[in-house]
């Protein structure tokens, strides 16, 4: 039984049905891009796209933290003293930066692992986000209870 993937198509590109060659880059991939990905074979496209979606989810989280940092600095002048407000904003903005960079690093590590059929690496993002979120929440709690 032939799948739709096997059927010839007028839109089928030059790579359709091409065998994966270990260590080879697909046609058209630039040298530096191939170097960053570190060789191997292209994984199933659904996995590549899933990796990109996960990266985008982490980037959204980083942007939410960034917006949170901006909001704390901009809107809480009646609630927190200036040093506390600045410290909370700095922690949130630092967390956003770390998450953004770690999301890119994680995407690359997962992409490389998939191209080599190696086990997926553990992500540092989860403990960083959990620890940072808990730290900021605890600081908020202490300040709010202290003001009460």
């Amino acid at each position: 039984m032939r799948s739709s993937r096997d059927e010839p198509s007028e839109h089928a590109p030059e790579t359709a049905g091409a065998p994966a060659i270990e260590g080879a880059s697909p046609p058209g991939r630039r040298g530096w891009s191939a170097r960053i990905l570190g060789g191997g074979t292209e994984p199933d496209p659904r996995f590549t796209l899933a990796n990109e979606r996960t990266f985008l989810a982490w980037i959204r989280t980083a942007l939410a933290l960034l917006a949170g940092g901006v909001a704390v600095e901009a809107f809480t002048s009646d609630t927190f003293a200036s040093p506390v407000r600045t410290a909370l904003a700095v922690v949130l903005l630092l967390l956003a930066m770390v998450l953004a960079v770690a999301a890119g690093v994680r995407w690359l590590a997962v992409e490389r692992a998939m191209r080599r059929q190696a086990p997926l690496p553990l992500s540092i993002l989860v403990p960083v986000l959990a620890g940072g979120g808990a730290l900021v929440a605890a600081a908020f709690l202490v300040v709010v209870l202290g003001n009460a």
Binding site: S4, R5, S9, H11, A12, P13, T15, A16, G17, A18, P26, G28, R29, L37, E42, D44, P45, R46, T48, L49, N51, E52, E111
Partner: peptide, 8 residues
């Protein structure tokens, strides 16, 4: 997805 191969 159609051709079963995509560049990251």
């Amino acid at each position: 997805i159609r051709v079963g191969r995509i560049e990251a």
